[in-house]
C-alpha cells in the first residue's frame, strides 16, 4: 500500500482485486472496468508530465495496453493504482527519448524534508497548473508525483529511476521555483 492510495484504498482495492483476477483470466470487460476506474488518474499524471494532451492520451493508452500484457506478472499484494502509475511513468520516460531527471548534487538530503506544499492565500487552480507546467522537467516530474499524487520519495525515485536524494533535491528546487513563479504571476 502506498501513500498515494491511502485515501481510496478501503473502497477501491478489494473491488480492484476481483476485477484484476477476472482480467488475468482474459476477461476484457473486467479490464475495461479497471480502465474506466483508473484512466483519469493515469491520464492526469501523463498530462502533467508531458504537458501535451495528445502525447498524454497516447501514453495513457500505451500504459493500459502494457498493463494488460503484464497482468500475469502483477503481484496482488501491491497496489494496482501504483503499478499502473509506474507503467505510465515508464511510458512517458520512454517517449521522451532524451536525458531526463538529470542528477543534481545532493549534500544532505535530510535538509530537504518538508511538509506538503501549501499557500498562505488560495491560488487559482489554473494558475497553479500553469506554474507547474513551467517548471524544468526533472523538478516537475518529482513535484507531480510527490506533491500532486502523494507518492513518497522512495516510490517516486524508483518510478523515475533516480536516487532518493536527487528526488528530494528536485522537490526542494521545484517548490522554490513554484513559489517564485506564482509570486511573479506566471501564466
Amino acid at each position: 500500500m502506498t501513500t498515494a492510495d491511502k485515501g481510496r484504498a478501503d473502497t477501491v482495492v478489494d473491488f480492484d482485486a476481483a476485477l484484476i483476477e477476472r482480467a488475468r483470466k482474459g476477461d476484457s470487460r473486467a479490464f475495461e472496468r479497471l480502465y474506466r476506474d483508473h484512466v483519469g488518474r493515469v491520464h492526469g499524471l501523463c498530462l502533467r508530465m508531458t504537458r501535451n494532451p495528445d502525447q498524454a492520451a497516447d501514453c495513457a493508452q500505451d500504459a493500459f495496453i502494457k498493463a494488460w500484457k503484464a497482468l500475469p506478472k502483477f503481484e496482488a499484494r501491491s497496489s494496482f493504482s501504483t503499478w499502473l502509475h509506474r507503467i505510465a511513468v515508464n511510458t512517458v520516460l520512454e517517449k521522451r527519448r532524451g536525458p531526463s531527471n538529470a542528477e543534481i548534487a545532493v549534500e544532505d538530503p535530510t535538509e530537504y524534508e518538508e511538509p506538503v506544499l501549501s499557500f498562505d492565500t488560495p491560488v487559482e487552480e489554473e494558475e497553479l497548473e500553469a506554474a507547474i507546467q513551467s517548471l524544468p522537467q526533472g523538478a516537475r516530474d518529482v513535484l507531480v508525483l510527490c506533491g500532486v499524487y502523494g507518492y513518497e520519495h522512495s516510490e517516486a525515485s524508483s518510478m523515475l529511476g533516480i536516487a532518493v536524494g536527487t528526488c528530494k533535491a528536485q522537490l526542494h528546487r521545484a517548490r522554490g521555483l513554484l513559489r517564485d513563479r506564482l509570486e511573479r504571476g506566471v501564466r
Binding site: V116, S118, F119, E125, L128, V148
Partner: peptide, 12 residues
C-alpha cells in the same frame, strides 16, 4: 482555488 498542491485534481 486551492490552498495546497495536493488539492489539485488527480483525476483528469
Amino acid at each position: 482555488r486551492v490552498n495546497r498542491i495536493d488539492q489539485l485534481a488527480q483525476n483528469v
